[in-house]
Amino acid sequence: MNLLDGLGDTILISVSSVVLGTILGVFVGLAMTYGQRWLRFIVRLYIDFLRGTPVFVLILACFYVLSVVGVDLTAFQAGVLALTLFCSSHVGEIVRGALSAIAVGQTEAAKSIGLTFMQTFVYVLLPQALRQILPTWVNTATEIVKASTLLSIIGVVELLLATQQVIARTYLSLEFYLFAGFVYFLLNFVIEQAGRAVERRISIP
């Protein structure tokens, strides 16, 4: 089934981009918060550049420009790379925001009981930051699912392109576009509900 394969690709693209982008984004946020001035400057440029560029352009750049400089990626890989970068810039920004929103007294209290910087980060700051980040992060994940449709432009047969191929054969454009739209809605609905459930579970009394 063409559509099922497409849906599988959409999910695979979204999950890998969100996972990779989040890991990268945490480091971006850390660098923004605790880095030396020069590092913060570079990372700030990175964030601003990625956030200021349309995802569409990012995808085209990863696919066409990288091959010019000798990096040959498949359309799938290039697409995931573009979405990962995009995701990391968003996650970086929200991680930075969450970390700097934690009162400085938390760090001081952690220091005063003899915790090192790493211990302070892992046991005191990160658990608080993650709770704060979660709602915005869920939002970013749904953005990535929607942005994954743009990969159809470079020929990745994800759900949208698979739908268009079916429509090309059957001419049932209204039915199949509606169906695709509904599936995207369902995906994001599940993500949001899951996010809310986790939020409730880990909320601090």
Binding site: G105, Q106, E108, A109, S112, V124, Q128
Partner: peptide, 8 residues
């Protein structure tokens, strides 16, 4: 501390 600074 003045502001307690317990880990919430």
């Amino acid at each position: 501390f003045q502001q307690f600074n317990l880990f919430p």
